[in-house]
Simulated scan of single mutants.
Amino acid sequence: MSALESKVAFVSGGADGIGLAVVERFIQEGARVAVLDINQEKLAALQVQHPERVCTVCGDVTSYEDNQKVVELAVQRFGRLDTFVGNAAIFDYFAPLSRIQSEQLASSFDRLFRVNVLGYMNGVKASLDALKASQGNIVLTVSNSGFYPGGGGILYVTSKHAVVGLIKQLAYELAPDIRVNGVSPGATDTEMKSVEGVSRKSQPLNHIDGFHEKAAQAVPLKRIAAPADHTSLYVLLASNEQSPMTTGCVIHSDGGWIAR
């Protein structure tokens, strides 16, 4: 029997990158998945590929109503909700505070934190009743930047530290009904977008010159991750049978930053 047989998950930012890899792995493990993403084209391709196992909503994680639509659709289509995976995020192109224009600081902060932190809160809030009914769980994507400096700029690193606090507080607030944990990927070969206006050089993360080589050399395992490299940890934390006593924890999948 697969680890997530008969389970239903909601994955935000699930049409690309780590989110897409999680969706595909959850399906392999027997789950059905509701996906929220802003990319209609990629959502449509995902729906065509998995017509019986996936339902989708094209929307913005910063909108509570869009998150609510996904939960309602999941329950209507699949009858329940067992897991919320908060994954959507944007980057800041390593911009230090000194290089962010003063007139851009507030708007860049608002946009990045609304996606990276409020987006998770919206998904959790919208999922609470359904998860409580199923005695389900929450898994949030953190980052090595949630623990160490230098993996991003001031906005991204601070937002990911906030996600670690969010996991701990939610685990405290939602126990004993809902377990809350996180996965902390290191540098991964994805096209995570940067917040507009924070840098004139802003571009997708894996398009940066030398990104793959520098990221690989920065960690003891000496390689950059593919999105699928992290997915077993999401499965583990989403399975109440495999991790029944784990809450308030973040599992690192970052090539060994702590051992540097």
Score class of each variant (00 low, 15 high):
Ala175Gly: 13
Ser184Val: 02
Ile178Met: 10
Met192Gln: 15
Leu174Met: 14
Lys168Glu: 13
Arg179Ser: 07
Leu170Ile: 08
His161Ala: 09
Lys168Pro: 01
Ser184Gly: 06
Asp177Cys: 09
Thr188Cys: 12
Lys160Pro: 01
Arg179Gln: 11
Leu166Gln: 14
Leu174Ala: 05
Gln169Ser: 14
Val157Trp: 00
Pro176Met: 15
Val180Ala: 04
Asp177Ala: 14
Lys160Gly: 02
Asn181Glu: 03
Tyr172His: 13
Thr158Asp: 08
Ile154Thr: 15
Thr190Gln: 11
Gly186Ala: 09
Thr158Tyr: 05
Thr188Glu: 03
Thr190Arg: 13
Glu191Cys: 04
Ala175Leu: 08
Met192Leu: 13
Val183Met: 03
Val183Cys: 01
Tyr156Thr: 08
Val183Phe: 00
Thr190Pro: 01
Tyr172Trp: 13
Pro185Ser: 04
Arg179Ala: 06
Ala162Phe: 03
Pro176Asn: 11
Asp177Arg: 15
Val183Gly: 02
Pro176Thr: 14
Leu166Asp: 09
Gly165Ile: 14
Glu173Ile: 11
Asp177Asn: 14
Val183Arg: 02
Ala162Gly: 12
Tyr156Gln: 06
Leu174Cys: 09
Gly182Thr: 07
Thr190Val: 15
Gly165Arg: 10
Val163Gln: 03
Ser184Leu: 00
His161Gly: 10
Asp189Glu: 15
Val180Gly: 04
Pro176His: 14
Ala187Lys: 08
Gly153Tyr: 06
Gly186Arg: 05
Ile154Gly: 05
Met192Trp: 00
Asp189Ile: 11
His161Pro: 02
Gln169Lys: 10
Asn181Phe: 00
Val163Phe: 00
Leu155Ala: 09
Ile167His: 02
Gly182Pro: 00
Asp189Asn: 14
Asp189Pro: 04
Lys160Gln: 08
Val164Ile: 13
Ile154Arg: 06
Met192Asp: 05
Tyr172Gly: 03
Gly186Met: 07
Tyr172Asp: 12
Tyr156Arg: 08
Leu174Ile: 09
Val163Pro: 04
Thr190Ala: 09
Glu173Pro: 01
Glu191Arg: 08
